[in-house]
Simulated scan of single mutants.
Amino acid sequence: MGKVLIIGAGGVGTVVAHKVAQNPDVFTEIVLASRTKSKCDTIAKAIDCNRIKTAQVDADNVEELVKLFNEHKPDIVINVALPYQDLTIMDACLACGVNYLDTANYEPVDEAKFEYKWQWAYQERFKDAGLTAILGCGFDPGVSGVYTAYAAKHYFKEMQYLDIVDCNAGDHGKAFATNFNPEINIREVTQKGKYYENGKWIYTEPHEIHKALTYPNIGPKESYVIYHEELESLVKNYPTLKRARFWMTFGQEYLTHLRVIQNIGMARIDPIIYNGMEIVPIQFLKAVLPNPGELGENYVGETSIGCRIKGIGKDGKEMTYYVYNNCSHHAAYLETGAQGVSYTTGVPAMIGAMMFLKGLWKKPGVFNVEEFDPDPFMEQLNKQGLPWHEVFNEDLEV
């Protein structure tokens, strides 16, 4: 049906490669590229699929990307590299007439700022080129937006309160490790909190708002309001929302490590001079922390991510709705060699590309996932390893 080019060979790239290889009726040709080609070769060997070609590319370099795209001529690029590289990859897609999908919005290297404005600015260029760009197609952002669109389509006349709840109740046995790129992860969870209420954004200190929320099959876990990028697009696309928040669980030991890292300056993203060399502290820290892609083998427990929504139902009565997925770290590892956080991001990225190649999510311009029909995506979640569950009209803890 189509040719896909995956950029990124970390934990998420590993899962994406496994999942596209499992769907040969859709992905007839596969190219896996990264700054380090040997990582791609290792993944391809583990999958044992002769349809996977590998390549080396510096995703910061538009010329290298253009050369790669022109050589392989993919129908769509799945970008699971770093968020700093979104714009260079989008530029190369425009130059070569290639469609685009990512899992995280662009952020500048020198500022931990999550906004879609940089990518939304590409709307007319992609539209004029007749190309599709699908933004934020991981789990959150990604499935969280599809869940919301599904609720709006099938159950709600007016969605008023949205709480995205993200719990990782897994244990990898390490004193401190991040579940995806440490640099991105630490930047994300140490910034100020932000949520939407009554038409404006409310800012909080990091981890200021927290409470214990109960997660299915897991139980109560202390959950913290942080800012997450899908809130920006969801409140834009669903103007009836009176409040939208994002909650994430953190253990006390994790937060203690995080505070120490910040207090001693290791979370800094500005360069310093050390022994006559310029280094960025958080990038050095990344080099010494455990590799997220190698946490899977001893990871136990599961994740639970979902949307808790309150509002007016199609029948005009007040209703609540909770849709979620629980994912086992061990099951994810047995299938793909990666842990559950990588799995829950990589599977939806593959499904988004599948939606495009099937012509179901294909229209010129730049779009967030909730702007497409959620039904075929929701159907594939059940088939591809992320089954979802619904709870109606129970008292939602938020």
Rank of each mutant, 00 (worst) to 15 (best):
T28E: 14
Y196R: 01
L135K: 01
E397G: 07
G313R: 01
W388C: 08
A353K: 00
G385M: 00
D163Y: 06
F377H: 08
H18C: 10
M248C: 06
K194A: 01
K221N: 08
K37T: 02
V288G: 03
G385Q: 06
I47R: 03
A92S: 14
V189S: 01
N99F: 13
Y195F: 12
T14L: 12
G219D: 01
N198A: 02
E124D: 15
V57T: 02
F356G: 02
E232Y: 06
N368W: 04
D315Y: 01
T148N: 03
T36I: 11
Y195S: 03
Y321C: 05
C40D: 04
G2M: 00
K236I: 11
I184A: 10
T345Q: 09
D48Q: 06
H329T: 12
R259K: 12
D25V: 05
P83D: 12
G8Q: 10
F392V: 02
I184Q: 12
M378L: 03
I52F: 11
I351N: 00
K317C: 04
G276E: 02
M248L: 06
A353T: 09
I47G: 05
Y195R: 00
D373T: 12
G346K: 03
S34E: 14
K358F: 02
V235Y: 13
H257R: 06
V165P: 09
A121S: 15
Y116T: 04
V398N: 12
R243G: 06
T14A: 13
I273V: 14
A44D: 01
E63A: 06
D41S: 02
T42G: 07
K221F: 07
D373F: 12
F156I: 07
E394M: 09
F176L: 12
I279T: 13
G306F: 04
G301S: 11
I272L: 13
G337V: 11
N61Y: 07
I273L: 09
L5M: 07
N50I: 06
F126M: 05
I269Y: 15
K363P: 14
E394A: 05
